[in-house]
């Protein structure tokens, strides 16, 4: 199915819904892996908004990306409870081991910061391709990343 058909399908799904923009953008991102600029105008038309308004919303929220990620997304928690359990050190080690920084994509792997996963009593916490990891360590995460990207 091409982009336009898929988008039309998503827009139809949310027709008439109050405050439909965020649900639409979530669906678009789930379908395309990011929110391509090409969808701004059709979404704006469907919701009777200006294109700039849609663009403004996309850029406001950290979740919405303008480019696809790697096939594997690793999220590392930077917030206080994880810091208290050596989270900053864990992130630094992993960055060194993988030769990349938070916010970067290298090959198949995207490394991202997240601010709290609600796992603060089993910190430090991370997420590897949607799988939550508590009591994490750099070594354990490295092994998991090697496993998923094998």
């Amino acid at each position: 199915m091409n982009t336009n058909d898929r988008l039309a399908e998503i827009l139809a799904l949310h027709r008439g819904r109050e405050g439909a923009l965020l649900p639409i953008l979530h669906d678009v991102q789930a379908a395309f892996g990011h929110v391509p600029e090409a969808v701004y105008q059709p979404i704006a038309d469907a919701l009777r908004l200006g294109r700039a308004e849609v663009a403004g919303v996309v850029s406001f929220y950290h979740d919405f990306r303008d480019a696809p990620t790697g096939r594997h997304v690793i999220k590392l928690c930077r917030a206080e409870a994880c810091q208290s359990m050596g989270g900053a050190d864990m992130i630094a080690r992993l960055e060194t081991a993988l030769g990349m920084k938070l916010g970067e994509t290298k090959g198949d792997v995207t490394l991202e910061a997240v601010f709290c996963l609600g796992l603060c009593a089993c910190a430090p916490a991370a997420e590897v391709d949607g799988q939550l990891v508590g009591r994490a360590s750099a070594a354990r995460l490295e092994a998991m990343i090697a496993e998923v990207s094998a």
Partner: peptide, 11 residues
């Protein structure tokens, strides 16, 4: 929205 680090009761 429970964004506070150290919180997880809502979840």
């Amino acid at each position: 929205d429970e964004g506070d680090s150290g919180s997880f009761a809502d979840r």
